[in-house]
């Protein structure tokens, strides 16, 4: 049985879709069978970020409404054999997402894939609550910026109350993914530091993705950043985050942090 991850944030534009595509591709690259599901009905973009926008035949709403089979709606990535995309509908209303329909689709995907990554829409409405509803693990994407941190706190509250896990008295596994981090600004004191965000949200850190041209370039080309240039700084950071999801213990490196020779040798432990 595969694991279901929700990539969520509350606030828009923080990097949910970029991170969903990058982590999905990284996990698939390391051999896992992965499907990334777009829950942003009406405003889909995961297809564009993954470069499959011209190949969408059916979508999540078609499957839920019984107009297409799940296998017909899944799009296989052209670069990785084990990476699939389930697009959201662009023309339908998000009210077409029903709780029962989503549950059926997630259960079917779980039985086939190792990882089911649900890319949540921004906000706390239906699409967002349904995306998190069946998750085993939540990745909270946050920018080091006040409104993003506040919205993440709100989302953490929902993860702990409105999910199947929470309702059945289990603990939802939550991870913080800090994105668009600018070490120079943080060093100058103009940006919240990693420790500030960790202290406020108090969930474990999965990774720090620096603000980078490589992310924009990859999205221009429709390639998950982890498949674009595997040696780029954001790509390495996403690969390490993916391996941490797999339970590997990889020291956390804060981008740009001034460290001595030994610091560079041994990195920094994850919180």
């Amino acid at each position: 049985m595969g694991k279901v991850i929700v990539v969520t944030s509350g606030k828009g534009g923080v990097g949910k879709t970029t991170s969903s595509a990058a982590l999905g591709a990284a996990l698939a690259h390391d051999g896992a069978k992965v499907v990334v599901v777009d829950f942003d009905v009406g405003l889909r973009n995961l297809d564009l970020i993954m470069g499959a926008e011209r190949r969408v035949v059916y979508d999540l709403v078609n499957v839920i409404q019984g107009e297409a089979k799940l296998t017909q709606a899944l799009i296989r990535d052209k670069r990785l054999e084990t990476l699939y995309l389930l697009p959201a509908s662009q023309t339908r209303d998000k009210d077409n997402l029903t709780a029962e329909g989503v549950e059926k689709v997630i259960n079917a995907l779980k039985s086939v894939f190792d990882w089911v990554i649900c890319d949540s829409p921004a906000g706390i409405e239906r699409g967002a609550t349904l995306a998190m509803r069946h998750a085993d693990i939540a990745i909270v994407v946050t920018n080091p910026e006040v409104s993003s941190v506040r919205d993440s706190d709100r989302i953490i509250g929902l993860l702990d109350s409105k999910t199947v896990k929470a309702e059945s008295g289990e603990r939802m596994e939550k991870h913080l993914l800090l994105t668009r981090y600018d070490p120079a600004r943080a060093e100058r004191g103009d940006m919240l530091k990693v420790d500030d965000v960790l202290e406020i949200l108090s969930i474990p850190l999965l990774g720090i993705i620096p603000e980078s041209m490589d992310v924009l370039r990859a999205s221009n080309l429709g390639t998950p950043v982890t498949l674009a240039d595997q040696r780029s700084v954001p790509s390495v950071a996403y690969f390490q985050a993916a391996r941490r999801l797999n339970g590997e213990d990889i020291p956390m490196i804060i981008p740009g942090e001034k460290r001595g020779f030994f610091g560079k040798m041994f990195g920094r432990k994850a919180a």
Partner: peptide
């Protein structure tokens, strides 16, 4: 049978 139908589109 829905499972026996495969549809591919490519918009150019």
């Amino acid at each position: 049978d829905g499972d026996k139908v495969s549809i591919k589109m490519e918009r150019g």
